[in-house]
């Protein structure tokens, strides 16, 4: 319950944070909201030598309108993301999904950027970033780079962010007016999603013109249900949606664990995709 010893640095700029990580070496670890890292420290499943606390870096705290996109600082809490007017107007799926992250206390403290960088395959938001085509700004010793969501999520708990790098912000293309729904399937309200389906659709005259579907916990990282997205174009009935949703498990590689086996997860992906899309489409 008591973490091992570590040094603590609290930079006030991104550059200072990167410098602290470089100085700290391989054992340095970024502490954002800490809601994923603190349990790891308390259980001594990780014992970093240096903690770089990024919670006081102003640049990472804002949500800004960038024309056709919304830029969310990596240090913005889940609660602030979910309640933000820009997010609610242009990124309904992200707002909806973020409301389902953990619980009130954790949403008050935890950050969306932290959750993305933690890359838990059961995380609610990474599939949204993938499906909506978000991009990630990463700062490191050699400057800043931008990485697409497809390249950002690498493997279980692994992203493109290097040990001496900091995630600065996430840019989401606006999906203004798109219908959205998140189906989180968990055993208790506190439990991680066994499977989650985040769906957002653009309707055109009663039928689906475009769809973006992200799946939680269907592989080592977030999965985009591209087969479903393609099959949904033009769908205007529940039957058509159901037929499209049959593609949901294609290309996935879900795990088996104490809560669910892979076969069951695949089944759930199909059922929940159908439901999520129907809700998002208002059908």
């Amino acid at each position: 319950m008591i973490p091992g010893k570590f040094d603590y640095v609290r930079p006030s700029t991104v550059d200072e944070a990167v410098a602290a990580l470089v100085a700290g070496g391989d054992d340095a670890k970024v502490l954002g909201g800490g809601q994923s890292l603190m349990p790891v420290l308390r259980l001594r499943m990780g014992e970093p030598s240096v903690i770089v606390d990024t919670t006081r870096i102003d640049e990472m705290k804002g949500i800004t309108d960038a024309g056709d996109a919304v830029v969310i600082g990596a240090g913005v809490t889940h609660d602030d993301v979910a309640k933000n007017a820009l997010v609610r107007e242009h990124l309904a799926l992200l707002a909806m999904t973020t409301e389902h992250v953990a619980d009130r206390q954790i949403r008050h403290r935890g950050t969306m950027g932290g959750a993305m960088a933690h890359a838990d395959p059961a995380g609610d938001q990474p599939p949204v970033a993938l499906a909506m085509g978000a991009s990630f700004t990463i700062a490191g010793p050699s400057g800043r780079r931008t990485v697409s969501a497809a390249d950002f999520f690498v493997d279980y708990f692994t992203t493109a962010v290097g040990p001496d790098e900091v995630l600065v912000n996430v840019t989401f293309p606006k999906h203004t007016g798109w219908g959205a729904h998140y189906e989180k399937f968990n055993r208790t309200a506190q439990a991680w999603a066994i499977v989650g389906v985040a769906a957002t659709v653009r309707m055109d005259g009663g039928s689906i013109a475009e769809a973006r579907i992200g799946l939680t916990n269907m592989g080592p990282g977030p999965v985009r249900a591209s087969g479903v997205e393609a099959a949904l174009v033009g769908a205007s009935t529940l039957e058509a949606i159901a037929a499209a949703a049959e593609h949901a498990a294609e290309g996935t590689s879900p795990n088996s664990d104490i809560h669910a086996e892979a076969e069951y997860r695949e089944h759930l992906a199909r059922v929940l995709t159908r439901r999520a899309v129907a809700q998002a489409a208002g059908l």
Binding site: R187, T188, A189, Q190, W192
Partner: peptide
């Protein structure tokens, strides 16, 4: 986290 005791929402 793995031994699931019900919360108010459950």
């Amino acid at each position: 986290a793995d031994y699931l005791i019900p919360s108010a929402a459950d």
